[in-house]
Design a binder for these strands. Structure first.
Lengths: 344, 344
DNA sequence: TTGTATGCGTTATCAC
DNA sequence: GTGATAACGCATACAA
């Protein structure tokens, strides 16, 4: 019943059942086609009796399959990352795949180390929030036809399928919402990782374009990308400009938090003193005072689709040509961007 | 340089370097002691040239070690879980271990499935937020001396090391804070999972005891454990009592969010109409209006320690007798529990 | 110091 | 229908 002494193998089961290893293996793999009914029963009984548990590592070695994929997140502290991981996990669980989660902390070296380890472990594919620095590594993987999917960000130099938000549209949605509520001095704050993250760039580009298309001037003083720790400083500078912004777009959840810390500390009223919209629909958006208008990403779908894309690729199911999937952001209209007239 | 054709093995490297497989293996395992300097170089060169990458699966099979542990979280939606996972990951990464994250969603069946799969994969140990229903399974694992660590919750029936918050103390801290600010009609809301979760029970017990020790009466109408979806209903009932509570303790982050939704919807002022303290120091605590007083868990330390405990156990380093570690909660005094006099 | 032989637990390919 | 046997890639005694 319990195998405290020695790990019991297929051979043990075979002996006990009075059949050969092959037969047991057949049974385990449900190839009962040409198997005698009583043999089947005997094997089943032996397995039961001895408490046999297959060794997947041995199987992996033989089959060169680990039924495991890796997920390398750029920064696990983003709510967005967690949500993505959760939905990838859901999908994989249903497909009897496991996931190994790695937190690269936006560090290309760490990312590389993880990728190497994952490959050494015969992990069958990787979903990664890529840092843009490991281009050569990605190229190598692509050359070797290693299943890879980018999520949240992209690396244009490499030909890898990607799952991304339509970032320009996200910025445009926010700008439009600001404009519709009569804000005109609109700024954007994003955190610049050292790496050349496409997502941030697209959001800023989309922001500029949206301003243009609404006939607004782009004020460079209102556009800043700095590390998280400096967000408050930059915002402070903006607010002390002779003409400060009256609305600000937060590039992601963490930036939003920094902005809110600032407004709180200096007692700025949202949206009266400063309207705010954040990209990423943070968990506290609807319970915050005031409720926070945000741009939501379809995280659940994005995670699922990334997993599906990767698993299909692994299983050799052809992906139909297209490579770069874009997801539609959704404006969650709440109260941090409201017409001031209503309020005053 | 690239091995598109065939996976290249130690044998290939050996041949290329003109040495034997053993020598290469020695090299890989850094046992250079009795190895000629030039042999070393030749091997290194061959590895480099051929782009050899060790196959950890094969190594695992041979050594019966996977350098991987599993982490089964009860519910990945709790910020607490994410933080714990993050710190486990940190520790393991430093120790060159990998983690496989599984989300049991408080479902014992799912938990069991995961445990089985992890064991089949020769995962060397598991850190789990246990559902209290799989007692037999835990007992079995214990019997087989399988490395296991419980975190956040405990299962008294089983003899497994555990890492837990001092939950009674957490509740007591909250009650004390309420009392110190002249609240006396104090309630507690926790979510009851179907399973018999020790954590919730301890928090409620601690709550009662603290009330007693402050000479306060325990009003059962103020103590409710229900599923998350019903938290608002229960709170509503409480607030419509002829004598409603004036302070409420939230059993965890998700419950807190429900409470805040309610107070927001019905325009209750915190802390004037209702003082609130939450167990778990949520990310938005210090940016919320008002700032939220919380009881923080030392998540980072707890995660680290859980990982350390498990890894030591795996490495055969004796743990010194003690089994159940309790961690001290910290009161994060902010503004959702303040003397009303000050405010009025 | 280096080479040889063998086993880890499973699956696959054939025979029988 | 079932069984022997050779891989899978690596590590490890032990021999040389």
């Amino acid at each position: 019943m319990n195998s405290k002494e020695r790990t019991i193998t297929i051979a043990d089961v075979a002996e006990r059942a009075g059949v050969s290893k092959s037969t047991v293996s057949q049974y385990l793999n449900e190839r009962y086609e040409y198997m005698g009914e009583q043999t089947k029963e005997r094997v089943a009984a032996a397995i039961q009796d001895m408490g046999y548990r297959p060794n997947i590592v041995a199987r992996s070695l033989k089959q060169k399959k680990s039924t495991t994929i890796g997920v390398i997140v750029a920064n696990i502290s983003h709510e967005f990352s967690t949500q993505i991981v959760k939905s990838i996990e859901d999908y994989c669980n249903a497909a009897d795949f496991h996931i190994i989660v790695c937190n690269a902390e936006d560090d290309p070296a760490k990312e590389k180390k993880y990728i190497d380890m994952l490959r050494a472990k015969q992990i069958e594919g990787i979903i990664v929030f890529p840092t843009s620095t490991n281009i050569e590594l990605y190229k190598e993987l692509t050359l070797e036809d290693y299943p890879l999917v980018f999520i949240d960000r992209n690396v244009p130099e490499v030909d890898v399928s990607s799952i991304m938000l339509d970032n320009k549209r996200a910025a445009a949605l926010a700008v439009e919402e600001f404009v519709n509520h009569d804000y005109s001095r609109i700024g954007i704050l994003t955190n610049s990782t050292v790496n050349n993250v496409t997502t941030r760039i697209e959001r800023v580009d989309g922001f500029r374009e949206a301003l243009h298309s609404h006939g607004l001037e782009v004020n460079e003083d209102y556009i800043k990308s700095v590390e998280l720790n400096y967000i408050q400083d930059e915002l402070s500078k903006m607010m002390h400009l002779s003409v400060p912004p009256d609305a600000i777009l937060a590039g992601n959840d963490l930036v939003l938090a920094e902005i809110l810390k600032y407004t709180k500390q200096y007692n700025l009223k949202i949206p009266d003193d400063l309207a705010v919209i954040g990209i990423d629909d943070v968990s506290f958006a609807s319970i915050y005072n005031p409720e926070l208008t945000t741009i939501a990403q379809p995280t659940s779908k994005m995670g699922m689709d990334a997993a599906k894309l990767l698993l299909n690729r692994i299983k050799g199911i052809s992906e139909n040509g297209q490579k770069h999937y874009r997801y539609e952001p959704t404006l969650m209209r709440r109260s941090s961007c409201k017409a001031r007239r209503q309020i005053l």
